[in-house]
Structures are given as C-alpha cells and as structure tokens.
Computed example of a mutant assay.
Amino acid sequence: MSKALLDKAKTLEPMNPNKSTALFGGQSSGILNWNDIKYPHWYQMYKRLVGNYWQADEINMSDDLRQFASLTEEERDAYLRIIGLLSTLDGPQTRTALLLSLYATDPSVQSIMAVIAQQEAVHNESYSYVLSSVVSLDEQNASFQFGRTDPILLKRNEAITEQYNAFVEEPSIENILKTMVYTALLEGMFFYSGFAFFYSLARKNKMVGTSTMISYINRDELEHGRFISELFRATLHENPEMNTEVFSDWVYSRFQESVDLEIEWSKYVLANVDGIDLDEMAGYIKYRANKMLRMMGLDEMYPEHTENPMKWIRAYADNFDGTKTDFFEQKSRQYTKTSDLNGFDDL
C-alpha cells in the first residue's frame, strides 16, 4: 500500500482546471463552480447539509431541568456518561473534517467538509448547553472528563484515536481512507447506543428537550455518514492500488472490533437502565454496522441482523430515504427528506 505523503492542497492555482483531476492528490485551480464538479450530485448533498442549520439554544430545556432530579440514579449516571462520550467523539470531528478538507484537491469536497466541521462544532456546543441546563458547573466538568479518564471509554476510543493521529502525522491516501472508515463508523454506529438511551427516556416522557436536540444531531450524522461513505468509495475508485484484499480485510476487522467495543460500552453504561434490552441493543449495533458497510460498497458482516430490532427509535429521529447514489455508473439519483415514518429504514 502506498505511503507517499500528500501535500496540502494549494489555495489558488489559476493554471490548473476548475474541475479537479482527483479528490486527493490531484490538480485544481481552487475555484469552485458547482455546475462543473467531478461528482455533480454532491451539490444536492451540500444543499441538504446547509438546510439542516440549527442552534442548540433554540431548544427549550426548562422541562428537562425540572425532570432531571426525578430520574433514577442509574438514568442520571448514564445521562452524564453518555454526554461525556458524545462530546469525546464529536469534539475531534470538527478538526478531522477540516484536516480532510486541507488535503482535498476537489473544491466541492472542501466546501462540504467545511459545513460538516461547522455542524460538528454545533454538536459539541450542544452538549455543553444541555449539561449547563440541568446540572452544576462541577458536574458538567466531571461529565466532560469521562472521555479521558473512564477506562472503558478509553479502551473503546483507543483505535480511533490512533488512526486520527496517524493521519495527522502521515497524510497519505492510505491514512485518508482509513480515517474515513473510522469517521463512517463514528457517524453511523458509535453514537447510536447513546442516541437510543435518550430516545428511551423520551418514550417515558422524560428529558424530551434533550431527545429533541439528539434527533437534530442524529439527522446531521446520517448525512455526514452518507457523504463520508460516498467520499470513501470515490477515493477508493480513484486509487485502485488501494482496492486490495489486504485493505478489505483491514476494514472488516475494524468493523468487527468496533462492534465488539460498542456492545461492551453499551452493556457498561446501560446495564441498569430500565427500558433498554441489552440484547436488542447489541442487535441494533450490528444492524447499524451492516448499514454502514453497504453504504461503503462492502458486504454485510451480520446476515442475521438485516432488520432494525429497535423500530421504536424511528418515532424520535428525523431521517432520509434509502436511495443510494452509484457514481461508478455516473448516475445521480434524487435524495429526499422524509416525514412521519416514511423511509425510517436508515435508522
């Protein structure tokens, strides 16, 4: 596999064409004409992303403040630990999205990653906003310490930490692809046991403000995961020397490892929470892994988990239809936002 390091994309190179010659390591002028990009359907993805604009303080948390004290001790503990987890994952995403954009030589990718980075910053701010609405400053700070002190969480995040830092140290095509694998896992699977906890509270009419905010984040992450999966496929298509059995085996092993760690984490943080079936949760995690593998153009790993075992989640999150884009056939198919229960298969 190629370890040749990439240079950061030039800001402006007027002698190069406007339409980039490659997503990474190519040539482009730096001038973005959305009507002249290599993957035209990505303009619609950009439009969907910017259409998802929201701010944390738009959500009324007054009922959550009143209800937090009435949660069980186990629910309060899980609430704080899961917020700590989400902040640990979303915080680095802002920087990782920006780093990917720095090495992208396609200006449409640069713009889309800039929007994703901004949304990840909003997500991280929202965790601070939620905690400041329901607990003291000391408790807020303690929750944000979990990502660097909790041994189960440290174990769970060790591999993604190593890969994200490897990309910083060695910005090669290989490390870009591997970073996108972990980003897809993060956007499409790592968050979801945490999301399920907040939706389970909402089922009992508890902490609905928090679950509303989580649903906004969930909607964003579905789009982020979709774009990263497409970017992964396109980058692999443009770099066929990376499309090897060795690399495929690496991807599948990372999915297996990540699923096992996510199940271990869910059992740890949700063990004593009423209303969540841990076996069902494990099945949901495997179902989400299958979804991400398919979106990345790979085979499912868990044939017994092709259906969502936690269908009740669909009532608490925005979602999109399951239309896929096959840019290898140079076809752009329409994505549409769904309402009510239509198209909630993606959850």
Rank of each mutant, 00 (worst) to 15 (best):
N272D: 15
L6C: 07
K291G: 07
G194S: 13
V134Y: 03
G225H: 08
Y335K: 11
P92S: 02
A22G: 06
G275M: 10
S2G: 05
N308A: 02
K324H: 08
I82G: 03
H237G: 07
Y335M: 12
L261A: 04
V246P: 00
L261F: 00
L137M: 14
Y252N: 10
L49M: 13
A142F: 04
M15K: 14
A117G: 13
G283M: 05
N308D: 09
H305E: 09
L71N: 05
G225Y: 06
V109R: 01
L341P: 03
A104H: 04
T212K: 14
A78C: 15
S172V: 06
N16D: 09
D279Y: 03
E58G: 14
R148V: 05
M15I: 13
A315P: 00
Q334V: 15
N272R: 12
S132I: 01
V259R: 00
D340H: 12
V134R: 02
V246I: 11
Q119E: 15
E139T: 11
V109I: 15
Y199D: 04
E300G: 02
E169G: 00
P309I: 01
K155S: 10
E158Y: 08
E221M: 08
F328H: 13
G283R: 14
V109D: 01
Y192H: 06
Q163D: 07
M189A: 07
N52M: 14
L278W: 01
Y127R: 05
G322Q: 15
F247K: 01
F247P: 06
G91N: 05
Q163I: 06
S133D: 06
